[in-house]
Simulated assay, not measured.
Amino acid sequence: MSSSLIDFGIALDAGIKAAHAGASVLQAYSHRRSDLIIDHKARNDLVSQADKEAEQAILEAFAELTPQFGIVAEETGGKPEGAATWYIDPLDGTTNYLHGIPHYAVSLGLIAHAGTVLPQATEPLTRDTPVVAIVYDPNREELFTAVAGTGAWLNGQRIACSKTNALADSLLATGFPFRDFSFEDQYMPIFDTAIHSTRGLRRNGAAALDLAWVACGRVDGYFEMGLAPWDVAAGALLVREAHGRAEDMYGKDPWPINGYVVASGNGLFAALSAMISPHLKPR
């Protein structure tokens, strides 16, 4: 991988502009959902022209503003390359969107690759690392951003995870299996434990916003299985920069690239992980 430096300011500015461009497409279509052409990629895996056109608007912004970075996008694919790669979800929460539920977001995460030198660093990265995050909720007009080493922000105000350190005092977010049921036998006992040992669970249907809400303290923790890399690339950094942890459930990947994510404030992380780990099968 490249050893070139990444300008965080340029990347963040590009991500914000790209997120707004994608969200403009989504909101234009949201008022005439019945006109949308919807394709079925697989069972309960939907894509509409809104997803596709929003992604195209994002890709055009990045082609102009950060052409040096690789692209991995939900609808058009791509591959990691260069010093860093954008992981793009133009519409996280597609099912909510198509049903008129105003809870979805644009999620853009920049992952710096091993060998890349970050600003103020003296040594190259030894593993892939999330470095810039943008999650934009156009319905609430909430823009969550983070840059490695500088903190996480909501509309320009610094945010932090909750200080809750006991499961009994925690409100958790999760996502039920809905497309891939191969991990159902692992998920269900975790779910059962959670409903008996916490204040409650919320299933809101947009992983990027679940992670953003952990980062700003609205929920204390979050866990989900079977996600895609673009679902969690941005949110993982938001949590990490908000004094929390967002990790691969198995503790193998440097960020939850394979979609098995557990996230919370630092104080709750050990208890949340201990609730989950006994039910995981070797991968």
Rank of each mutant, 00 (worst) to 15 (best):
1 M>S: 12
1 M>G: 04
8 F>H: 14
10 I>A: 05
11 A>R: 11
11 A>S: 13
13 D>F: 04
22 G>Q: 07
23 A>L: 07
24 S>F: 06
26 L>R: 12
27 Q>H: 07
28 A>T: 09
29 Y>H: 15
32 R>C: 13
32 R>P: 01
33 R>W: 08
34 S>G: 07
37 I>D: 14
42 A>G: 12
51 D>A: 09
59 L>V: 08
59 L>P: 11
60 E>V: 04
61 A>W: 01
63 A>Y: 01
65 L>Y: 06
69 F>T: 05
73 A>Y: 01
74 E>A: 09
75 E>W: 04
76 T>S: 15
81 E>Q: 14
83 A>H: 06
87 Y>F: 11
87 Y>N: 11
88 I>Q: 02
89 D>T: 10
93 G>S: 09
97 Y>Q: 15
98 L>N: 10
99 H>Y: 14
102 P>Q: 06
104 Y>N: 13
105 A>K: 11
106 V>W: 08
109 G>M: 01
111 I>V: 11
113 H>W: 07
114 A>L: 05
119 P>D: 03
120 Q>M: 12
121 A>I: 02
124 P>C: 08
124 P>L: 14
125 L>A: 03
125 L>M: 05
126 T>W: 08
128 D>S: 09
131 V>Y: 05
132 V>D: 11
134 I>N: 05
135 V>K: 14
136 Y>G: 06
137 D>C: 10
138 P>D: 10
139 N>H: 15
143 L>A: 04
146 A>H: 06
150 T>L: 12
154 L>N: 05
156 G>V: 14
157 Q>I: 14
157 Q>R: 15
158 R>M: 13
158 R>Y: 09
159 I>Y: 11
162 S>Y: 01
166 A>W: 00
172 L>P: 03
172 L>G: 04
174 T>Q: 07
175 G>N: 14
179 R>Y: 00
180 D>V: 09
184 E>G: 07
189 P>N: 00
191 F>A: 08
193 T>L: 15
195 I>W: 12
196 H>G: 14
197 S>H: 11
197 S>A: 13
198 T>S: 12
198 T>D: 05
201 L>M: 13
203 R>H: 11
203 R>F: 12
204 N>I: 05
204 N>M: 14
206 A>T: 15
210 D>C: 14
220 D>H: 12
223 F>G: 03
224 E>D: 13
229 P>W: 02
231 D>N: 15
231 D>Q: 13
232 V>L: 01
233 A>I: 00
235 G>P: 10
236 A>E: 08
238 L>T: 04
240 R>D: 07
243 H>N: 15
247 E>G: 00
247 E>C: 10
251 G>D: 01
256 P>Y: 02
257 I>D: 08
267 G>W: 00
270 A>H: 02
271 A>G: 02
277 S>N: 03
278 P>E: 03
278 P>Y: 01
279 H>R: 01
282 P>F: 05
283 R>Q: 14
